[in-house]
Design a protein around this nucleic acid. Structure first.
Length: 505
RNA sequence: GGCCGAUUCGUCUAUCGGUUAGGACGUAAGAUUCUCAAUCUUAAAAGAGGGGUUCGAUUCCCCUAUCGGCUACCA
C-alpha cells in the first residue's frame, strides 16, 4: 500500500451541543493524527439548513479546546483545502453532481415527499431502487425535453445515486475487518436537492474527504450501514484508489441498558452527557457539562479514551501524550460500551490527586470567595492538603472544609449524645488549659501533649477526642484533629471549645 | 419487517486453541484510626444457549436467543 500522509477529520453537524460520544470520536481522530504526525481537520457539516442551531459550532470548538483536542486546519483554523464549512461549498458539490449526471451514475427525480409517502403506504418496505425507479417520475422515465421543461418550470427535484443491484460491496474496516453488503438492499440515495442547492451528507462527505485528501475516516458505528454506499460513490467518481480507510467505532450506550447514549440521558440519570454546559437557544433548556460539574479535562480525556479502547495491559491512568503513543485502532473493541459514570468519578479523583495542593487551592479559591469568605492562598493550600485525598471534585471541598471558615452554631445531636457525657465540660476545661500552655500548635507536638494528658488521666480516648472534634467542627467527621487545630490556631480553637462548653454544659 | 454489527464478573475490559479466565470501577470484610473519609489487604463476582471442528475450545465455524445500529429530500 502506498505511503500516504495521515489526514483525519472531525466533522460534526452544528445541530446542538456535542455529546460525549462525539467527543470520543474527536479524541480518537486526534490521537491517531498525532501519533502518525498527520493532520487533524475540523469540518462543519451543515448541509441540513433545517437543523442548524446557532452557537453549536462555537460550542464544539470551545469544548474540544477545553479538552486539549487541537486541530491543524479547518473552520476557525484555516488551511489550503477550504472552505471547511459545507454550506460554503455549494459550487463544488454542484460540479460533482453534474459529473454523476453526465456519467450516468446519477439521475434527476421529481417525486415529491407526498408522492413518496404515498408509495410507502401503498407498498410495504418500499424502496427507491432498481426495482421501482422505472415507475417513478425521474429522468430515467421521462424524456430529456420533459425533464428540462420541468426544471424550467421551477419544479423541485433531487439527484439520486443510481445503484446497480446484485453486487456484493466490500468495506474493509480497520476495527471490524471485512463487512459485505449486497447493493440490492441499498436504495437510490438522494445526493442533492434543488430546493436549497445543497448536497446530502453522503455526497458532501465523499467529495470533501476526497478533496481534502482525508486518509482515514474514524467515525461512529451508526455509519457502518452506509459505508458500502460511500464505497460505491468513490467508485462512481473513479476515486477508489485514494479512498480513505474506514474505522467504525463502537457506540456509547446508556448506563441502564437500552440504546445509545442520548442527550436526554444525562439529566434523567443525573450526570452530564456534554463536555460543557449547554444552553439550548430554542428551548431555553440548560444541560449540564463536565467542566461545570467539576471535572478536570485530562480526567475526561482519559476516561473517554478507555471506553472502547485499551492499551493491552493494566495501565489505566494515561496522559494525552501517553495516549498518543499507545493508541491503536486495532485495539478498539467492537461492541458498544455502557457509560459508567462511577468510573468517571474515580478518574477525576485520580487526576485531582496528581494536581498540587496549591493548584487545587487556586481552583477552590473562587468558591470560598463566592461564599463570602476571605482566605489567603497559603492557608487555603494547607486546608486543601488535609482533605484533597477524600474528594472527587473541587466543588466537594466546601462541604469538607466549611468549618474552617464558619464556627459551628449547633452540634450534631447524635454525636453529642454519644460523646458529650457528664463531666465532659470539665475535661474540656482541662483541655483548654493544656492548649493554652502548648509551646506550639504544630500538629505532631500538640498531639503528643494532648494524648499524653488523656492517657495519664485515664480518660476515654475516643470520647475526649470526639468531644474536642465536636466542639471545634460541630460533627464527628473530618481530617486529623490536630492538623485542624494547627491551621485554625490556638485562639480560635480555644474560643470554639469555650463556646461548646457554654452551650452543651 | 429487512440488512449489518455485537455478545467474558453488575460495569469497562485482558486473553490472539492449552491460564487457578487477569486487571480496574463499584460492592463486602479486615487493617489503620479520635471520627468520617482516603489508603492498604482480602473476598464475592464472568465466557448467552445449542451444535460442530479439534487431543483440547472463552478463543474457529454454524444455528438460536438477546442487545445495538441502520433502513429520510437528518447527520
Amino acid at each position: 500500500m502506498e505511503e500516504r500522509k495521515v489526514r483525519v477529520r472531525f466533522a460534526p453537524s452544528p445541530t446542538g451541543a456535542l455529546h460525549i460520544g462525539g467527543v470520543r470520536t474527536a479524541l480518537y481522530n486526534y490521537l491517531y493524527a498525532r501519533q502518525h504526525g498527520g493532520d487533524m481537520i475540523f469540518r462543519i457539516e451543515d448541509t441540513d439548513s433545517q437543523r442548524f442551531v446557532p452557537g453549536a459550532e462555537e460550542y464544539i470548538m470551545e469544548a474540544l479546546e477545553w479538552l486539549g483536542i487541537k486541530f491543524d486546519e479547518g473552520v476557525g483554523y484555516g488551511g489550503n483545502y477550504g472552505p471547511y464549512r459545507q454550506s460554503e461549498r455549494k459550487d463544488i458539490y454542484r460540479k460533482y453532481v453534474d459529473i454523476l449526471l453526465e456519467n450516468g451514475k446519477g439521475y434527476i427525480a421529481f417525486d415529491t415527499p407526498e408522492e413518496l409517502d404515498a408509495k410507502r403506504n401503498e407498498i410495504a418496505n418500499f424502496q427507491y431502487d432498481a426495482s421501482t425507479r422505472m415507475s417513478m417520475r425521474n429522468s430515467l422515465t421521462m424524456s430529456a425535453d420533459e425533464v428540462n421543461a420541468a426544471i424550467a418550470a421551477g419544479e423541485k427535484y433531487v439527484v439520486r445515486f443510481k445503484i446497480e443491484p446484485g453486487e456484493d460491496v466490500k468495506v474493509n474496516d480497520i476495527i471490524r475487518g471485512e463487512v459485505v453488503i449486497n447493493s440490492s438492499i441499498l436504495d437510490d440515495k438522494v445526493l442533492y436537492k434543488s430546493a436549497d442547492n445543497l448536497p446530502t451528507y453522503h455526497l458532501a462527505n465523499i467529495v470533501d474527504d476526497h478533496l481534502m485528501e482525508v486518509s482515514h475516516v474514524i467515525r461512529g458505528e451508526e455509519w457502518l450501514p452506509s459505508a458500502p454506499l460511500h464505497v460505491l460513490l468513490y467508485r462512481a467518481f473513479g476515486w477508489e484508489d485514494t479512498m480513505p480507510r474506514f474505522a467504525h467505532l463502537p457506540l456509547l450506550l446508556k448506563p441502564d441498558g437500552k440504546g445509545k447514549l442520548s442527550k436526554r440521558d444525562g439529566d434523567r440519570l443525573g450526570f452530564p452527557v456534554f463536555p460543557l454546559e449547554w444552553h439550548d437557544p430554542k428551548s431555553g433548556e440548560v444541560s449540564s457539562g463536565y467542566r461545570e460539574a467539576g471535572y478536570l479535562p485530562e480526567a475526561v480525556v482519559n476516561f473517554l479514551a478507555l471506553l472502547g479502547w485499551n492499551p493491552g495491559n493494566d495501565q489505566e491512568i494515561m496522559s494525552m501524550d501517553e495516549l498518543i503513543k499507545l493508541f491503536d485502532l486495532h485495539r478498539c473493541s467492537k461492541s458498544g460500551a455502557k457509560f459508567d459514570y462511577e468510573k468517571g468519578k474515580w478518574f477525576n479523583h485520580q487526576y485531582l490527586q496528581l494536581r498540587s495542593d496549591r493548584e487545587v487551592a487556586e481552583m477552590f479559591m473562587p468558591i470560598v470567595e463566592g461564599k463570602g469568605y476571605k482566605c489567603d492562598i497559603e492557608t487555603l493550600t494547607r486546608i486543601v492538603s488535609l482533605v484533597k485525598s477524600r474528594i472527587n471534585f473541587v466543588n466537594e471541598l466546601w462541604e469538607q472544609t466549611a468549618f474552617f471558615f464558619v464556627a459551628p452554631t449547633e452540634y450534631e445531636e447524635k454525636s453529642v449524645r454519644k460523646r458529650w457525657d457528664e463531666g465532659m465540660a470539665a475535661r474540656m476545661e482541662e483541655l483548654i488549659a493544656i492548649i493554652e500552655e502548648l509551646p506550639t500548635m504544630e500538629s505532631k507536638a500538640a498531639e503528643e501533649v494532648v494524648l499524653g494528658w488523656i492517657t495519664e488521666k485515664g480518660y476515654h480516648m475516643g470520647n475526649v477526642m470526639n468531644a474536642y472534634r465536636l466542639a471545634v467542627v460541630g460533627y464527628c467527621k473530618g481530617p486529623h484533629m490536630f492538623d485542624i487545630s494547627e491551621i485554625m490556631g490556638r485562639e480560635e480553637t480555644v474560643a470554639r471549645l469555650r463556646k461548646a462548653i457554654e452551650r452543651l454544659g
